[in-house]
Design a protein around this nucleic acid. Structure first.
Lengths: 206, 206
DNA sequence: CCCCCATGTGACCACCCGGTCACATTAGTG
DNA sequence: CACTAATGTGACCGGGTGGTCACATGGGGG
């Protein structure tokens, strides 16, 4: 919801603003991010910013929307395989590709991480909305897993969603941990997913 | 590390200050919490606060320390059973009792939740310290589970820690969700733990 | 050339923050 | 009572914030 003026801008200037907003909101959550800092670093007059966006929240919402748009496109190839591979392979590929997204676009990634911690009431609504979308997508995946028999029919679906969501968030929060290099991180994701797949109880078979 | 003056205060006044600090830091994470708001609501002069504590962070560290002290005492009965019951029962009791803590002391609980989101550099050190303590405690528990045979020796211990920590944090963050009543919440915790225990793959036995 | 309108600007506003300090108040002691 | 030391106080400071507004700038068309 930027004002029309923003879209009349030459692309270069739009990118400049977007980039510096990205830098700021990647470093700080919404409440602590400073609009003054953004305009100073972008060498834009504060008043100009208010020609483009209604207020700080307007800018933030636009930024988050664009960031998630990019992430969704990045993950699309994984979703396209939904019917071809099983639940566990799909989950693995999903997190592996999310990790590559974080590597390639660390600022975008950090914005998504900070987004979930926001306390602003209006933004929390957006968060709940995004959460619902995830639940639906995950339920679809899980349903396919149940039908093909790779997922046990005994599990409590809500509990499974809860566990996967919790683990996904923790994985994503740690994607940029500098102590972990590429190879071991991919292995690590798979170790974690194996725990979810097989459980802690010993299995008699195999 | 409050100043000696603080401990010379009559207990009533100490409790007053503690209570209003609790209210503020339960509502906001460290950076967004307002010292001015605390002193105003407690009807204390701002200058007085600086007779008791070196600065905002000093007050916060003291508060967090007291809160975790209370929580540790509350959970002690569970740890005392460490040798008597198995890994999965212990985990269940641990989260059940954590949930009762959140119910009985919602402000204390909320302070612990906000604590983990803090970005202040000095406070992040405390966070890492608390995290190490948790890792050690959990490793001990898991080791007992392995020795007694209720936990599969094939699992990657680091991955198990990661999963349990992630799920614990998510459970705790949702403890005060008003949509969930007492009975169903206890059942919910057990459903989630069952997913971790048995995994998603169907089991041939049983 | 001038007029118009979209765009750019930065001083300025009210408000809030954490922290300080000169001074007032109180309580205990001889 | 007086003297001392501890404690209480709130106006004040410098610095930050999101947001505004009267005005400057510039480029295209009559």
């Amino acid at each position: 919801m930027p004002k029309p003026t923003f879209f009349n801008l030459p692309e270069e200037k739009r990118n400049l603003i977007f980039h510096h907003a990205l830098l700021e909101f990647a470093q700080f959550p919404y409440e602590q991010a400073s609009l003054s800092a953004i305009v100073n670093r972008a060498a834009i007059a504060k008043g100009s910013m208010y020609q483009y966006f209604a207020d700080k929240r307007d800018l933030y919402k636009y930024l988050v929307q664009e960031v998630y748009q990019k992430k969704r496109e990045f993950l699309q190839p994984v979703w396209d395989q939904k019917e071809k591979i099983n639940f566990f392979e799909l989950a693995s590929q999903y997190y592996q590709r999310s990790w590559h997204f974080a590597r390639q676009f660390p600022l975008h990634h950090q914005v998504t991480v900070n987004f979930w911690d926001s306390r602003d009431a209006a933004i929390r609504e957006e968060i709940l909305h995004k959460k619902e979308i995830r639940i639906t997508e995950f339920s679809d995946m899980l349903e396919l897993g149940l039908q093909s028999g790779v997922v046990s029919p005994e599990v409590d679906k809500d509990a499974v969603w809860f566990v996967y969501h919790a683990v996904a968030k923790a994985l994503i929060d740690n994607f940029l941990d500098p102590d972990i290099n590429a190879e071991s991180h991919e292995a690590y994701i798979n170790s974690v997913l194996t725990v979810l797949e097989r459980g802690l109880r010993p299995r008699k078979e195999q």
